[in-house]
Design a protein around this nucleic acid. Structure first.
Length: 306
DNA sequence: AGCCAGGTCTGCG
DNA sequence: CGCAGACATGGC
């Protein structure tokens, strides 16, 4: 029997969609293999799988899994609180069981610096490349598996290694942010204790972190569930279904994104981040845009736009 | 081949 | 301030 193997029984009233939660774009290191989800959390390789109301795991412990999957949070209450209009209602129906994970702030900080102006498949590759190049190998796994690199690890090598990770122009931001965290190792812990607006301001001081990345880091790395990141998809959904862009508005602008974010937080309330994530995950349904997801996907005929 | 992607930063007016 | 371009790369 594998170390740390066990089963968690989900409460009848607490939905979970493990696959959706791990693949929806809030975490980038989970892969489906042989019926399991495999991912590195901290120093360990986890294997997780869901069978109905059971979560089966190995390589970790039940409390760690419960914490990571936020099984302590009352999802029906959260979903009821954001269920304020037919659009988000449809998203909830489509994605019920999606939970916002509790992930490591440092890993999320670097991940969402990498996530700017690119697509999810490539983000996954960039993160995998960083881990393979700078992380520690985790023993006891058939495939080579690596931890997410600590800040110092991203700095020691001569920079050629970073270039080899193919981050594009983001490599400077990753290196700069790693340098700042290495010089001030307590900074993320302090940010974790800040009120959200101060935490947001602090995150904006890292190179490569703008308003959208800061909100993603707050939501996924610091579990600030009121955060409402506005990316190209959310902007599209909000303009199509909630608040048409002002006449004469050209494409995207920081001002317009701020307007969308403020509307989202006002409209959805304290759990606006959950609303954002459900809308994001239902974007194909809502906007009729073909979206790729990892793993073998059985694609029917995509609905026409609108 | 060309448009686009979970945007950010810089340099203008 | 607010806005336009540049930006490095690869998915589709």
């Amino acid at each position: 029997m594998l170390p740390g193997m066990g089963t968690i029984r989900l409460r009848e009233d607490q939905p979970l969609d493990l696959s959706l939660s791990l693949s929806c774009g809030q975490a980038f290191r989970w892969e489906q293999r042989e019926g399991w989800w495999e991912g590195v959390v901290g120093e360990s390789l986890w294997r997780v799988r869901q069978e109905g109301r059971r979560v089966i795991y190995s390589g970790t412990t039940a409390p760690a899994v419960r914490h990571y999957l936020a099984l302590d949070e009352n999802l029906p209450v959260i979903l009821a609180s954001i269920d304020r209009d037919p659009v988000v209602y449809r998203s909830i129906e489509a994605c019920r069981g999606l939970r916002i994970l509790r992930q490591d702030p440092w890993e999320i900080l670097i991940s969402f610096i990498c996530a700017t102006n690119t697509n999810i498949p490539r983000i996954r590759k960039m993160i995998a490349s960083l881990a393979r190049t700078f992380g520690k190998r985790i023993p006891g796994s058939d495939e080579a598996v690596y931890t997410f690199p600590v800040p110092e690890a991203l700095l020691v090598s001569c920079g050629d290694h970073l270039a080899a990770c193919r981050l594009g122009y983001r490599d400077r931001s990753v290196a700069g942010t790693a340098g700042m965290v290495e010089e001030d190792p307590g900074i993320l812990n302090r940010i974790a204790g800040f009120p959200s607006n101060d935490a947001r301001a602090a995150l904006l001081s890292f190179p490569g972190v703008g308003p959208k990345a800061a909100d993603c880091i707050l939501l996924f790395g610091f579990h600030r569930l009121e955060s409402f990141p506005v990316d190209v998809w959310i902007r599209r959904i909000m303009h199509d279904h909630y608040m048409p862009p002002p006449p004469g508005a050209k494409g995207s602008s920081e001002k317009e994104d701020r307007r969308i974010r403020e509307f989202g937080q006002e409209h959805f309330g304290a759990y606006a981040g959950y609303a954002q994530e459900y809308l994001f995950c239902a974007r194909e349904l809502l906007n009729g845009v073909k979206v790729r997801s990892p793993g073998p996907s059985s694609s029917g005929t995509p609905p026409a736009r609108r």
